[in-house]
Simulated scan of single mutants.
Amino acid sequence: MLNYKIKIKAFYGFVLNISVIQIMNYISKNNIKGNGPIHLPTKKKIYTILRSPHVHKKSREQFKLYIHQRFFFVYNVKYNVLKKIYIPSCVKLEITKIC
Rank of each mutant, 00 (worst) to 15 (best):
Y26N: 03
I18P: 04
K44L: 14
N31I: 06
V77T: 10
I46H: 04
H54K: 05
K45R: 13
Y47C: 05
L65M: 15
E61D: 01
K33V: 06
H54W: 00
I27T: 03
Y79D: 10
K45F: 14
Y47I: 11
V91C: 04
K83F: 10
S59H: 13
Y75Q: 02
V55N: 09
Q22V: 11
Y26K: 10
H39R: 15
F72P: 04
K57E: 01
H39A: 15
I18Y: 14
H39D: 15
K64E: 03
S59M: 08
P41H: 00
L82N: 10
P53I: 05
K78R: 13
R60I: 03
N25P: 05
C90D: 15
I27G: 02
V77C: 08
G34N: 11
L65N: 13
T48G: 07
V55P: 05
K57Y: 05
T42L: 06
T48C: 09
Q69S: 12
S59A: 14
N76S: 12
N25T: 09
I38Q: 00
H54F: 01
V20S: 11
Q22Y: 13
K29Q: 02
L82E: 08
K29Y: 00
K64H: 06
I85M: 11
I87R: 09
T42Q: 11
Y86L: 14
L93E: 13
H68Q: 08
I18V: 15
K43I: 01
K43L: 08
H56K: 15
L93K: 15
P88Q: 15
N17K: 08
N25V: 04
V20A: 10
K78G: 09
Y47V: 11
Y79V: 09
S59N: 12
H56W: 08
N76V: 03
I21W: 06
F72E: 07
Y79Q: 12
N30P: 00
K45E: 14
F71V: 08
I67P: 03
V20C: 12
K83R: 12
R70S: 09
N30E: 08
T48L: 06
K92Y: 10
L40W: 03
R60S: 01
Y47A: 07
N80I: 07
Y66V: 01
R70P: 04
Q62I: 03
V81R: 06
S52C: 11
V15H: 06
I49E: 10
H54S: 04
S28H: 06
C90W: 11
F63D: 05
I67W: 07
K58Q: 10
C90I: 14
C90E: 15
S59F: 06
K64S: 06
E61G: 00
E61M: 01
S89L: 12
N25D: 08
Y66D: 02
L65G: 06
L16M: 03
I38N: 03
V15E: 13
K58D: 10
Q69F: 04
H56Y: 14
K44P: 04
I27C: 02
K43W: 02
E61I: 01
L40T: 02
R60C: 01
P53W: 01
N76E: 10
Q22E: 11
K83T: 14
M24E: 15
H68R: 08
I67D: 07
I46N: 02
N76P: 03
H39I: 15
N76I: 03
F71R: 12
V74W: 04
Y86E: 12
L65Y: 12
Y86I: 15
V91F: 00
I49K: 14
N17A: 08
I32F: 09
F72Q: 05
M24R: 15
V15N: 11
I46T: 11
